[in-house]
Design a protein around this nucleic acid. Structure first.
Lengths: 217, 217
DNA sequence: TGACGTTTGAAACAATCGTTTTAGTTATTA
DNA sequence: TAATAACTAAAACGATTGTTTCAAACGTCA
């Protein structure tokens, strides 16, 4: 009676609800999205969310968990793929990491909004932060840091974590402020944006490896 | 009867409501903060918000407008002050811009949460985006860009706006993910964080000015 | 077919939301 | 002091929220 169904036989309704959750929660956030909107978007009955997931919050958690894992796994695959190739460089790695999601974001696909979802989650903390922190750090950031060190000899190991953080900040920015970019730089192309980020981050990391003396002082 | 009071004689209740709004909206966002929480925090009656501001959203708008202008003006003052001194450098400018707000954020003061409020606003867009975009760009970002060009000769002018954006991304990151920083790097000091950001951004900007040929490729 | 477990539909639930109303209190001014 | 405006207090309002209920419909296997 009070057991949540988990048969995965007729996943149609469940998947449609997960899709609707991804779309609406990304766009408007958790609080401003009602279960009536979700079920309407999914084309199912109002009670379906409670029937299949046990509540609005459980649906959110399930959706977030999936998207989050998918994002991390996608990045790990990208890194592995690039590192296996012969002509690997820092610039090339940065480019393949940031370009696909940026293109998706500009195309306004749902997948491009996942980073917004992540930021919302960090702010609102509906899910156990330990879970998000642990996976994000141990799986992705640590891997990225070791690759940076591999590609750019001379990086101070004790600062690697901070470097990865700042890199994350740079790539996160256009996702959060996409409208701002488009309004203040209407002629900006995706290539220009991608090239800028690559150049900016690469310069920062390489500058870190070969510390320059202060000028103009 | 239906006119909103704007006497500014007894500003006690109004200011207490604005303070409560700043605190609670920053912490929990607009939707998850109720007028009952706000009036309790402010120590006034439930109807006071509608009486003085005309509604919950008007209170939010008024609070945001004030905080936003205060933040921009503070940054402009900081820039002007630094640029007037004799031994001005890019590193010094970066340091004085980012250090005070970071210290406030670590101390968990309300003022340190304003950037979170800004990000929330960009996501939810309760206020006319034109207003935020216009002031942010014309008053602050343009000034910052011109100062960067002044301090670092050789910066490509057509990329200045993007450089400022990426700089914003780097400094925004620790504010959004402060808990993440503290959990994954518990021994990190504020000085180390500030020095890292200065070094990272300075390297990025200087590297932009003197384009390096790609290595390892 | 008949019975049973699963899924759906529509209505109703209690709780909370922002806002309004109304009466009462305080302050101000003539 | 009387009258008017400014403010506060408490209750109630209508709307919306997430959730629950329960009967009808569906699918499956005897």
């Amino acid at each position: 009676m009070d057991e949540i169904r988990r048969d995965f036989e007729n996943e149609d309704v469940q998947n449609r609800l997960l899709d609707a959750a991804e779309k609406l929660f990304c766009e408007k956030g958790f609080a401003r999205t009602s279960v009536r909107e979700l079920t309407t978007e999914a084309g199912c009955n109002l009670a379906a969310i409670n029937y299949y997931f046990g509540g609005k919050e459980k649906l959110y958690t399930e959706m977030f968990r999936r998207q989050f894992q998918m994002m991390i796994q996608g990045h790990l695959d990208t890194i592995d793929q690039v590192m296996c190739e012969g002509d690997v460089s820092l610039e090339k790695l940065l480019k393949v990491i940031i370009e696909p999601p940026i293109r998706r974001a500009v195309a306004n696909e749902t997948k491009g909004q996942i980073l917004k979802l992540l930021v919302r989650e960090v702010m609102d903390q509906k899910i156990d932060p330990e879970y998000v922190v642990k996976d994000m750090k141990e799986k992705f950031f640590d891997r990225l840091g070791s690759v940076f060190m591999q590609l750019v000899p001379g990086l101070p190991e004790e600062r690697i974590a901070l470097i990865v953080m700042s890199f994350d900040g740079v790539i996160l920015h256009p996702f959060l402020f996409m409208e701002f970019y488009q309004k203040t730089m209407p002629d900006l192309t995706i290539d220009e944006l991608v090239n800028h980020i690559v150049r900016f981050v690469a310069a920062a990391i390489r500058g870190y490896a070969s510390p320059a003396e202060k000028e103009a002082g």
